[in-house]
Design a protein around this nucleic acid. Structure first.
Lengths: 343, 343
DNA sequence: TATTAGCACTCCCACCTAGTGAGTGCTAAA
DNA sequence: TTTAGCACTCACTAGGTGGGAGTGCTAATA
């Protein structure tokens, strides 16, 4: 589809455009990237590339700008090649690792860091605690037919939720229920024990069958179906970018970011085994903003699916952004070992 | 200090400026606000008011703009007079009341609502649970000399925190400790029982005196000294305001908002018995942004100090903003009754 | 056939130049 | 004390100009 030389030109235009933000002329390319050829030759190639929708001119007598298609080619080239971890920002990443206390605050800090290091907006999302290992499950009665469900995960993480009970239940019976669940589930991941649990839990609590089912279901929701919790940081960074000098464009981006639902959709869609992915311009309908790119990567942290991302202008330094993102994600991620033990 | 007529002119200039955003001329004031007098008269008065630092001219041949001093006069006049609850936004406030589930999400929603209704940035902060009534206190061992402290408040609210124990302690002893604290504190506010608690808690746990002290201290921190948790919403609103057409100004505001610490300071300083207060321009050093005003009000919600605020341009519709803020705050606030019972 | 030098052409942009109008300060009269 | 009148100031706009970067096309060249 593209000749070797055309590819070279496309990559050069994108690279130069990312650096300067200005339309790139044939002379520049000839002088800095394809020294053997003259500007006229490049011009001919460029005219072809324009027909093929890799380049376009903002007006007749201007240089060329890359289209999203050209960015795609450029980013794919970066992703294909082996990336080396940059050094300048390693200090910050170590700093983050040092401060890493609970996941929430780590992510909050990470989004700021991501944003500041790349001049983009940092986003983070934690999903359900699918891989987490349980330590204790407890129900506390807080009102008639209302209980507070508390799940403590290994490492001291705590999840809780207020739930309605189909039948009223006194605290003693709730304790019995808590006890039964804890005995079986402790030291294992919920995903593995949930199916085997109901029969055992019901023993001695037959008259509360409905409650038992409801209780297990709520734990299910809490640990497996909990929606993603979002963080963003460094929003102010993009204000200084020339790409967003236009206020109306800025407003669209900010409004979308505050909406959260579209970001959540984006994260939801992004399955962790995808590694790292880059969306350019309006490639993904969930983030339909021209001139914005999204980079996302994910891993497991504290037993939870964790997605880290960057939102910035299409004209961003992808190379740097990607390696910052990878480094930060790496320093957030943890592997929690699970006790091997059956019911 | 100001004659009756001068005051009238100041209020008129502020009012007109808030409406139009343009410098206000003597003719406008004469025609719309002081019909008896001619423009020339108003001009003379205005020259005096300029000397007194209530008005200024952006350039020689322009109308007058109000200084922060003039805004102060205007706002004080509003605050002095009885305010009527507006009707147009009552629908949204009712909606908020309907959705009011847990305090966190209510505040999150409230900040959005505040922002959208007033075209400002909504902020909210919840402080320590000073007034809350306890239901249960529990310690769960999660590692060698590390325990998870869980405090359940009446109504099913939960606070938790990981703490270090001076001495190691097995779960059984931790249970004993939990039990002792719960028995005394349940049904009362922590503030009232904390001082009387230590002696009782130590009984039977003499050899763990250090741990007991540490444990009570941690509950103290969790319930009384916990720092404010901040929310902001509707940040995108100010992007469309002509007052922030200047990107650099916008950037300063956004950066400050993301910093959080200065907002926290602002909230911290604001003591709840102050009712409602308005800071104009750089009146408060904690929010040193020219052309920005802050309105804050606070109350108790779910036993916690709750501050609601608005950050917007100095040129905002104070009348509307104040009444929206009061209405939203009112719909968030709750009074929790406390059981009357002594140790 | 691919490449290149030359040249006319296009169009943005920065700069300048009135012209317009809203609003002022000052003065002198009511 | 108030007001009409008038000269003056200054931001804002529209229209005009020159320079420069970059193009497309053509014809000569390897």
């Amino acid at each position: 589809m593209l000749t070797e030389r055309q590819l070279e030109i496309v990559l050069a235009v994108v690279y130069e455009y990312i650096k300067t933000g200005e339309p790139v002329g044939s002379r520049t390319i000839a002088k800095r990237y394809l020294r053997g050829r003259s500007a006229a030759t490049i011009r001919n190639e460029m005219a072809d590339l324009e027909e093929m929708d890799f380049l376009y001119q903002p007006h007749t007598s201007a240089g060329r700008l890359p289209t999203p298609k050209a960015f795609r080619v450029y980013v794919d080239a970066i992703l294909r090649r082996q990336r080396s971890p940059g050094d300048e920002y390693q200090y910050w990443v170590r700093e983050l690792k040092k401060k890493r206390d609970d996941l929430e605050s780590a992510l909050r800090y990470a989004t700021k860091l991501l944003g500041d290091l790349t001049n983009c907006i940092g986003v983070a999302a934690v999903g359900p605690a699918e891989e987490a290992v349980l330590q204790k499950v407890e129900f506390v009665k807080v009102a008639e037919r209302t209980a507070l469900l508390i799940v403590i995960l290994k490492g001291g993480l705590l999840h809780h939720k207020t739930m309605q009970l189909p039948q009223d239940m006194d605290q003693q019976t709730l304790d019995e229920l808590s006890q039964r669940i804890t005995v079986v589930a402790s030291g294992k991941s919920w995903r593995k024990v949930r199916d085997a649990l109901l029969k055992y839990v019901m023993q001695g609590l037959q008259s509360y069958a409905e409650n038992c089912k409801a209780a297990l279901n709520e734990v299910d929701i809490l640990l497996l179906k909990d929606s993603y919790h979002l963080f963003t940081g460094g929003k102010h960074n993009i204000l200084s970018l020339p790409d967003f000098a236009d206020l109306s464009r800025l407003q669209v981006v900010m409004a979308l970011l505050e909406e959260e639902s579209s970001i959540a959709e984006l994260v939801q869609k992004f399955s962790p085994d995808k590694g790292l992915s880059v969306m350019i311009g309006k490639e993904d309908p969930a983030f339909p903003i021209e001139d914005c790119s999204v980079i996302m990567a994910s891993n497991i942290a504290d037993g939870k699916k964790t997605v880290l991302g960057l939102i910035g202008p299409v004209r961003m330094d992808y190379e740097r952004s990607i390696s910052v993102l990878e480094a930060v994600l790496d320093s957030i991620s943890t592997d929690v070992e699970e006790e091997v033990d059956d019911i």
